[in-house]
Design a protein around this nucleic acid. Structure first.
Lengths: 238, 238
DNA sequence: CGCATGCTACGGAATTGACCGAAGCGCGGC
DNA sequence: GCCGCGCTTCGGTCAATTCCGTAGCATGCG
């Protein structure tokens, strides 16, 4: 089968430790420079450059030149989802080794992080759970749906309904969204268009902030208030 | 980050051409013997055995001993989904190379195949499209939903509603299902619980049959009638 | 223009891992 | 019990790939 050759090539590209680290770092959806990526992967810039070129040629990542910097980012959403699904398998297969990897950085990641374009970790799960309890969303491992009151709620906290309308199915006023299994919490959080809109909104309003050089997310004081008040999600700042 | 090591290991395991072929073959959800897998991968049984052992130790696949045969199968659904998502990326990145790979076997795969536990290819897309047109399902790239009439329709063709009820959300009578982007047709087909139930039912009733040693699916004469009559899906037998 | 910076191209060294031949083990059939 | 078959283990060969040191190219600043 010819298609399995390209399959193997892509998987092999993701399978090198250095490249895996870089892809991992790009999972927050931002664009990073070659040197930054080299540092997170623990290799020299020359080596990183070679890796990045290979991944660019195949099309896993794309590059944006800006002055003397070259910013690398994941090429498409489906690449991010692929990486996510590999992480999912990795999380399931590591029931014990888990204990080894609880450094301070890991703790921050477990509390709140971005998953390409939406929230994950305790924050992501807590928000999803809050929305579920109030009947704003329904989630199964197969699919998710936002109800009419849910859409109203999002509008109330300032998320432009128009942004969401575009992808509504034509026949109904429902809004479908993607559930995403959290590798640290092992519970579902909110992805897809809705999750992305929620995350972007929180960043824009300053309720959360990205931590430099990592996928971890900081919840600001104001964010803590909002999440407690609007979502009933307390204890996120611990 | 410790988790990226296991990530890389899993991706690397999937990235070898021989192992990729074997995983590819296991994507139909069945269990195959080591010799069969060696044949499809084009390697000797000794080599295949080593590969299979490594993948078993990590947990990508599992073994079931039966007499002097050892049947290998994918370990979990999430592994199948991971492979699927890699195939998805591969399909997107191969706009041109596609032309090279249209052998007779590929043609059969494009017409109808299984995607772990549900239908894909022209058959899968046609069934999903038929259900969509009649308002039985709604599908977006993020999520899917089966409507009340859709559940009734499934019951009409003989799919036990009880099987489906179990996973209904408690609050509603809706049934969520997973959309799955088809790598050959580039359109959505029906996965998740509903897709699996539909596929299993068709196999059981003899509307479709698996072709030995491949993921391709044969549509029987009776199946062609049923699909045309119940789904309005014609031309599937060409 | 000169220089620092960020990145890339080239070379060889070293490790890794895929592969098969030969041999060993376990199960089932005669 | 003997043989055949499926599968695995072992040992050695060979190709691929990772890696970094050195050098070269572009950009931006003073």
């Amino acid at each position: 089968m010819a298609s399995s050759a390209l399959f193997a090539e892509i998987a092999a590209l993701s399978g090198d430790p250095g490249r895996a680290s870089m892809l991992h770092a790009l999972m927050d959806g931002r664009a990073l420079t070659a040197t930054e990526l080299a540092r997170v992967a623990g290799i020299t810039p020359q080596t990183a450059s070679g890796h990045l070129q290979r991944m660019t040629v195949v099309g896993l990542i794309k590059v944006r030149q800006q002055g003397r910097h070259r910013y690398y980012e994941l090429a498409t959403v489906s690449v991010a989802r692929m990486l996510e699904s590999i992480m999912q398998v990795a999380a399931e297969l590591a029931p014990d080794r888990r204990r080894l990897s609880v450094g301070p950085r890991d703790l921050a990641l477990r509390r709140a992080r971005t998953c390409y374009d939406h929230f994950a970790g305790r924050l992501g799960v807590a928000l999803a759970e809050a929305l579920r309890q109030r009947g704003y969303v329904e989630l199964t491992s197969d699919a998710g749906i936002i109800t009419e009151p849910g859409i109203a709620f999002l509008a109330e906290i300032g998320i432009d309904a128009d942004v969401l309308q575009v992808r509504r199915t034509t026949r109904t006023r429902r809004l479908l969204c993607r559930p995403c299994l959290d590798w640290s919490e092992r519970r579902l959080h909110l992805g897809g268009l809705v999750g992305a809109a929620l995350c972007a909104h929180c960043m824009q309003r300053g309720w959360t902030r990205r931590l430099e050089g990592t996928r971890a997310v900081l919840i600001t004081a104001e964010g803590g208030r909002i999440f407690a008040e609007k979502f009933g999600a307390v204890g996120l700042l611990d």
